[in-house]
């Protein structure tokens, strides 16, 4: 059995989750408590991939990153980098579809923090960066981690946008969801079943762990309230 789809899926999910984590945390923190014109429009745009069909996301990405696309063409001519039909395209698709999950989790995590803690740190001479590093981030961590896990799971299971942007090239862009679809297409039910079991087990343990984790944090919080 060729295990390359598993490795590729994990590689794609790890890289996309890292990117999504950095940007999700950055934007959620930047937008928190900041009111500006058009904020709700920007936030709606962030969350849009959550409700759009993956094919629409893929179509949009193709328009931008295709060989003749605005960004894709520029990348190709300037750096000789092609995005479409490579595993980078799978990463890009994963980033776009999992960003909303990370952003929402991070925004909720930051929102639930007591502003006074940061203020207390400021009165003791802490810079904004130190407040973030020592107060905001560690206290928001349970929520951020939940977002991280959700994004990872979403990235692992991404299919529609990936198919549009990365296509199915065995050994190159065949993530597990791709492998399943094309195994069924080719009538290889055994192979498909194998991957279905693998990805279901991965998804199930992710959610199980996440539930356990959030309950644990609830308990900890409850003991603090006492």
């Amino acid at each position: 059995m060729d295990l390359s789809p598993l490795l590729l899926s994990i590689k794609v999910a790890v890289i996309s989750t890292t990117i999504v984590f950095v940007f999700g945390v950055f934007f959620a923190h930047l937008f928190e408590k900041r009111l500006f014109w058009g904020k709700s429009i920007v936030e709606s745009l962030f969350l849009l991939p959550l409700v759009l069909p993956p094919t629409v996301v893929g179509f949009g990405l193709l328009i931008l990153f295709g060989k003749k696309g605005w960004i894709g063409n520029w990348l190709l001519e300037t750096f000789d980098i092609q995005i479409v039909f490579t595993w980078t395209a799978a990463v890009l698709a994963s980033v776009v579809v999992s960003f909303p999950l990370m952003y929402q989790s991070a925004a909720a995590a930051f929102d639930s923090l007591d502003n006074k803690l940061g203020d207390a740190a400021r009165t003791m001479g802490a810079s904004e960066w130190r407040v973030f590093r020592t107060i905001t981030f560690p206290l928001a961590w349970p929520g951020l981690l939940a977002g991280l896990v959700l994004s990872f799971a979403r990235g692992l299971g991404e299919f529609g946008a990936t198919l549009m942007l990365a296509g199915y090239i065995p050994g190159k862009t065949d993530t597990i969801p791709m492998a399943i679809y094309f195994a069924v297409e080719a009538g290889k039910m055994e192979k498909a079943t194998f991957w279905v079991v693998i990805i279901t087990a991965l998804g199930f343990s992710t959610i199980l762990w996440l539930n356990w984790w959030s309950k644990r944090n609830l308990r900890r919080f409850a003991s603090e309230k006492r």
């Binding site: 803690l117 009165t123 810079s127 020592t134």
Partner: peptide, 16 residues
């Protein structure tokens, strides 16, 4: 705030 060198005791203490 960080440059004012003041001490502030919050109502619910705001301990970390």
């Amino acid at each position: 705030t960080r440059s004012r060198n003041i001490g502030y005791l919050f109502q619910d203490y705001a301990l970390f």
